[in-house]
């Protein structure tokens, strides 16, 4: 599998990454290099091996259902670019 420049532009847009026209070719080449390595991995016979979803073989730790957090709005909002009436303000969202 290899990516085209159109794929690169699309992936960049989905990830909100700015990749300008001069960079597209270079990114395409690098990404295809990585995909080449993955292709080598995929050639290995993994019949009967359970797919791995996490690098460490541990189970998820669970906490008890207790609400212990306190209200720290003032501290968090002190560094926000714009707030009003306790709300974070962002450029208008259209739906």
């Amino acid at each position: 599998m290899s990516l085209t420049q159109a794929d690169v532009r699309r992936i960049a847009r989905l990830a909100r990454l700015q990749v300008n026209d001069t960079e597209v070719a270079e990114v395409e080449q690098k990404l295809n290099g990585i995909l080449g390595l993955i292709e080598q991995l995929q050639a290995i016979d993994t019949e009967g091996v359970e797919p791995m979803s996490h690098a460490r073989d541990v189970a998820l730790r669970l906490r008890e259902d207790v609400a212990t957090e306190t209200n720290r709005r003032a501290a968090f909002q002190a560094v926000a670019p714009a707030v009003e009436d306790g709300l974070y303000l962002v450029p208008k969202v259209i739906e």
């Binding site: 009003e84 009436d85 306790g86 709300l87 974070y88 303000l89 962002v90 450029p91 208008k92 969202v93």
Partner: peptide, 8 residues
């Protein structure tokens, strides 16, 4: 609010 959206 003032042409912006408020987030809660």
């Amino acid at each position: 609010v003032h042409g912006m959206s408020g987030i809660d």
